[in-house]
Amino acid sequence: MTVDIAGAAAALLAADDILILTHRRPDGDTTGCAGALCRGLRQIGKTAYIMENPEITRRYAPMIVPCRPPEGFVPRYIVSTDIAEEKLFPDTAAPYKGKVDLVIDHHGSNPGFGKKDLIRPDAGACAEVLYDLLMALGVQLTREIAECIYVGVSTDTGCFKYSNTTAHTHAVAAACLTTGIDGGEINRALFETKTMPRFQMERIVFDTMAFYEDGAIAVALLWRADIDRTGADMDDLDSIASLTRQVEGVQIGITLTENKDGTVKVSVRTTKEMDAAAICKKVGGGGHIRAAGASFDCGMQEACEAILAAAREQYHAAR
C-alpha cells in the first residue's frame, strides 16, 4: 500500500520495537537514513535499532554500529531504508523478506515490497525523504541526526553535482548545516581524501579502461587479484564507478567488480542522454536513470559481454 509522508509518520507513531534494515554493500544514503531514523525515533520515545550489516565499511560504520540491537531483541515493526528490492537485503536481514512493514525509498524501480511503501523517485537521495519524515514526526534536528542526513544527501548526489540534485536537496542540506555540522569537512573526507589502496585502484581503472562506440561507452574491470594486491576494501571501492563517466565523450560508464566468491557486481553510470536503469534492467538489475547496477553469478568475461551488449543496445536505441 502506497503512503505519503503523513501516512508513514502515522504508522511509525503507532509502532514500537522497531528494527531498521540497510542494503547490501551499504553506502552513505542507506546508512545515513538508518542512522538518522533510529536516533529520531529514540528521541520521540520509541525503541529502535539498526540490523547489523556485515558489509558495513569503516567510513559509514559510526552511523549504524552504535545502534545494533541487543541480544534477544525481538522486533515488532520492520522498516527498510534506501532498499530498492528484497534481493538487496544483506544476509542478516534475510529472515525479514516478506515481512517489512514500512519501505522508505527513492528508487523508481522499487516494486513496493512492504505493507506500506513510502517511495519518492523525485528525491535525489533517500535521506531527503527521511528528513521530511522526521520533520513530520516532530523530531528535533540535532547535530548527530543532521550529520547522518547530510552524508546521505551528499553521497547520493555526488557532492551535489549529479543531475538528481534539486532545490529540495539543497534545502535539506541547508537545514542540516544550520545545526552546526561541518559540511566542508564531511565532503572533504567523503570525496577528496584517498587511501593509498584507493589511489592504486583508481590508477588501475584509468590504465585499463576500454572504450566502445567511438568512445561513448567506457568499461573498467576490477579484478579480485588487483583488489587483493592493493589491499583495497569495500570502503576504498566506494563510488569508484563514477570514474568511467569522467572521460569526455563517455555517455555510458560501466564498472565490473569481481567479488571474492567469483560473482560480479556491475555499476552503470550515464550522462543525460542515456538511461542506466534501462540498461541494467535488461540483465536483471535496476536503479536510477543516471546510476544503476546488476549482479552476475558468472565470471567477469561473460558478465562483461552481457552488460556491454545491453549498453550497446540502449545506446543505439537512444540515438
Rank of each mutant, 00 (worst) to 15 (best):
L88V: 05
A84C: 12
D29K: 03
K87P: 00
P66K: 01
A6N: 15
G28W: 02
P26K: 11
P62D: 10
K97P: 00
I20Q: 00
A6M: 09
I44N: 08
D16A: 02
Y49L: 01
G108Y: 03
R68V: 00
L41Y: 04
P69F: 00
V79R: 02
N53H: 08
L12I: 13
D105R: 07
R25C: 14
I83R: 05
A11M: 10
A36F: 11
G112N: 07
Q43A: 05
I50W: 00
G28S: 14
L19T: 12
S109E: 14
K87I: 03
M51K: 12
G32L: 14
G7Y: 09
A10D: 12
P90I: 00
V65M: 08
V65Y: 00
R24P: 02
T47C: 09
Q43T: 01
A14F: 07
L37W: 02
G108C: 09
Y96P: 11
M63E: 15
S109W: 03
Y96N: 04
C67P: 00
S109A: 09
K87S: 06
I20T: 05
R76K: 15
S80P: 06
I104G: 04
I83K: 01
D29Y: 02
I50E: 00
M63W: 15
I44E: 03
S80H: 03
G40S: 04
E52D: 11
V74C: 04
L41W: 08
V65I: 13
A9C: 13
L41C: 12
Y77I: 01
R42K: 06
K115H: 15
R58V: 14
N110D: 13
D91Q: 04
I78M: 02
T30N: 11
F113Q: 10
I83F: 07
T92K: 07
Y77M: 04
T30K: 02
C33S: 14
Y77K: 03
G32N: 15
E55S: 05
L102I: 12
D17Y: 09
N110G: 13
A14T: 09
L88S: 13
T31S: 11
Y96W: 15
H23R: 08
T31A: 09
F73Y: 06
I83V: 15
H107T: 13
T81C: 15
L37E: 01
H106L: 03
R68F: 12
V103A: 01
G28F: 07
L12K: 06
P95Q: 03
R59L: 15
G112T: 09
L88P: 01
I50G: 01
